[in-house]
């Protein structure tokens, strides 16, 4: 397959602009959110200060879901319109989402060992979360294996859509099936003393997610532009 002779940019290359500043803000806000929620909340009556893991595990899980929802939306756009920018946004969100997914699993295990008595068990919630992670690791390796950008975009969009379907399954798994993992907490099951920490950290993780996806997308666009220039040079153009 011969690549296009001239690098074509559907939209101008993204620039860093004020995004590094936003990144600094996200980091400072995350530190503030963590420190304040840990200081403000009393120990839980059952698990004591182990409860604090809630302030990283739960926002990490929400952020994972959100990142894969972005993958879903942009993968559908790729299948519909076939634009490279959409493909690169989906890929960036998938990469960041997989990272948060791994974080969710790891933090959950750290909480599970002292609470449940086991690091891991094959209940529906844990298993489906692991499957979600593996699908997106597969998604990222698939991208690395396919050389041709258009095929890569289409194949990974298909996998991205199929992978994102698992998000509602993971979310609902604790309601649909009996699991060791508890049901979702809600303001009625969580004492107001802990709600602040969950809320403020949800925003902190959201900001970090936005920052990481944006910068990853910038990098992906630059990498693609460089590839295209290479192709042109290899064909002896300009």
């Amino acid at each position: 397959m011969i690549p296009p002779a001239v690098p074509h940019h559907e939209t101008p290359l993204p620039v860093a602009g004020r995004w590094p500043l936003f990144g600094a803000f996200a980091l400072v806000f995350l530190i503030f959110a963590q420190v304040s929620s840990v200081l403000v909340s009393p120990p839980d009556r059952d698990m004591g200060h182990l409860q604090k893991i809630m302030y990283v595990h739960v926002p990490a899980a929400w952020t994972t879901f959100l990142a894969f929802f972005v993958v879903l939306v942009f993968s559908l756009l790729v299948l519909w319109k076939g634009r490279e920018t959409h493909d690169l946004i989906a890929a960036s969100a998938a990469e960041v989402g997989a990272m948060f997914n791994a974080l969710t699993l790891a933090l959950g295990m750290i909480w599970g060992r002292p609470t449940w008595g086991v690091w891991w068990t094959w209940d529906a919630r844990l298993t489906s979360t692991l499957v979600l992670f593996l699908i997106f690791v597969g998604y990222l390796s698939l991208r690395a294996f396919i050389e041709e950008p258009e095929r890569r975009a289409r194949w990974s969009a298909a996998v991205g859509v199929l992978g994102a379907i698992n998000v509602p399954i993971v979310y609902m798994s604790v309601k649909w099936w009996r699991t060791l993992h508890q049901l979702q907490s809600s303001p009625s099951t969580v004492d107001p003393a802990y709600v602040y920490g969950l809320r403020v950290n949800a925003f902190a993780f959201l900001f970090v997610l936005i920052y990481l996806v944006r910068r990853r997308y910038e990098a992906a666009r630059l990498a693609r532009a460089a590839e295209q220039l290479n192709d042109v040079a290899a064909l002896g153009g300009r």
């Binding site: 009393p42 120990p43 839980d44 009556r45 059952d46 698990m47 409860q51 809630m54 609470t115 449940w116 008595g117 086991v118 068990t121 060791l180 508890q182 049901l183 979702q184 907490s185 809600s186 099951t189 969580v190 004492d191 003393a193 802990y194």
Partner: peptide
């Protein structure tokens, strides 16, 4: 093998309660 299932409730201990 024994596993403890924690509920989705998070409450501070009541006055004087030391679970």
């Amino acid at each position: 093998s024994l596993m403890v299932k924690h509920s989705n409730e998070y409450r501070p201990p009541a006055e004087g309660q030391r679970p």
